[in-house]
Design a protein around this nucleic acid. Sequence first.
DNA 1: TTGTACGCGTTATCAA
DNA 2: TTGATAACGCGTACAA
Lengths: 341, 341
Amino acid sequence: MEVTIKEIAKLSGVGITTVSRVINNSGPVSPKTREKVMAVVREYNYIPNNSARNLKSNQSKSVALLVKSITNPFFQKMIKVIEQKVALRGYQLIIQNVTNLQNELDIAISEAKDRNLQGVIIMGGSFNYTAAKFSGLKIPCVLLTVSAGDEVSLESYSSVRINDELEAFKAVEYLISMGHRRIGFIMNAPVDEMTPNSLRYRGYIRALEQYNVPFDSSLVASEFSSLSGYDFGFKMMKQLLAQNKDVTAVFAFADIVAIGAAKAILSSGLKIPENISIIGFDGIEEAEFYHPSIDTISQPAEQMALSSVELLFDMLQGGETRHMVFESSLLKRGSCAAIHK
Amino acid sequence: MEVTIKEIAKLSGVGITTVSRVINNSGPVSPKTREKVMAVVREYNYIPNNSARNLKSNQSKSVALLVKSITNPFFQKMIKVIEQKVALRGYQLIIQNVTNLQNELDIAISEAKDRNLQGVIIMGGSFNYTAAKFSGLKIPCVLLTVSAGDEVSLESYSSVRINDELEAFKAVEYLISMGHRRIGFIMNAPVDEMTPNSLRYRGYIRALEQYNVPFDSSLVASEFSSLSGYDFGFKMMKQLLAQNKDVTAVFAFADIVAIGAAKAILSSGLKIPENISIIGFDGIEEAEFYHPSIDTISQPAEQMALSSVELLFDMLQGGETRHMVFESSLLKRGSCAAIHK
DNA sequence: TTGTACGCGTTATCAA
DNA sequence: TTGATAACGCGTACAA
């Protein structure tokens, strides 16, 4: 059994209250008493019992991070930052993976009660949250990379994201500007659910329209899949290549998918960018070190992660909800080239 | 404020004890009473307060996973499995990254008290643990991918790992068998600290010796670095290429490093495997989807992760410590070829 | 400036 | 089969 506050009190010849005041810096204690108590605390290596504290205060200094598909390297970059920043504030971070089949908000609600969390950051997922669901979640919540859709009041959560549609537009516009007109798109979710993917799909469509490039549904490789991003990209690209001999460029909704697609292209004996141009989305290291390095829309991951933590703690301290939209940048690294007849 | 056991008791017209018995399945309760209580529990969506439970039982159902360099995709595969399996057992998993500069065991000790953990899994790190340190950690501990070194009694921890030296030997032997004699080695830690890297280095040395290939220290690119694995591999390979025009093969201590090195080779205008053969270690997806796919020593990551959780829970239930050593397999995928003059 | 005593929500002991 | 009641370790009115 560990040493308790009671024993510390007895050992230092003071009352329990005084010890409590000393270790929490609450209420007045004479410097002499403080030193006396601290000496005993150090000597016995006293650490307050967290369970008891939590029980009293009805709050445990912990927040959760729910991640949709935790293995995506793009999320990894952010997880690392979040983990550090949360720890820095003396909070415990509980990271939990959410599978494709689970609803992240449901999990947040049950976990919040179960672990009595102070707040939660949800990374990834869809935009399809109902106001009802949100009202079931009684703790501050920050959505990272998505927002909650129009139905939900902006006061019920904070969010950090990018403008997926616009950035996707930029990517496709870039391809079009190089003369491409047979541009494939790879995405992994059904179009009818609102996810970053479907927003990027919109950007794709809008770019085609704006530049009068005819839309061809056979160029859109879309499938609900539980494959890893790499495998998925590989499979979809193989399919695209088989069905469309004339495709000259591909936009993949994520870098990991772009890498899988690139592998499919290269292992088919085609060259990047000579035969096919490819561009991804996210800005992960893996794309940079691929050969050739893969062009991408790079999201400011660290910044976004940092902001999500700040927004959460703002809310914990009674601050307003906020919604931040970051800019991404188009990185040209050589996997896209002008088309030549 | 949430509903408490007391209120449930009142609402269902029974005593607190009875409610406690119902929700914990402890002690005898008549079926009728049980149903009555359960109805109220469901109606009010009662969830027992964890803090209070922990306070009573002096244990919180939580274990920690300490990860050295959490961003390595190889660890990611394992993290996912561990997270699932721990959750399956109703335990909370606290994942914490440990930087290169921190000692994982120190952190385990302080966290164990602080969060009153039931157990801890340490992933990565070095073999340099002292018996003294271990005795300071009073909860079950499983080391994953390393063991603790000879000084520490095998009864004070469990471990899951591979035979790093032997597997590295196999990798280098493979290169030698294809005629290579100028074989580079890339590792990231000082040789004097016991890490998986240094064991792999030994395997490298031993293979050279056994096959009478002269050792040349200029072929060993070693540096203590906080770069990412990719960046590190890239930098070291550039260095190797500059210093040794005649290097024909490279063994990297990890796949991510191999990928960085491959990028350095390819972007120098050299070809893999025509000019230089390369082999990595770990077996991550990124190596498979690289172009060319990179040969590697593949560790059974999922199996190892699974076992680590099993071993931990065995110990939690009073079982013995155990030490498992898994076999790895040499995956030949085309990044290594016979040397041709 | 200090200490006593109560209550946080549970579980477990004991008597009914 | 049930139900009071005493802990668990801590924070904090309130009294001194």
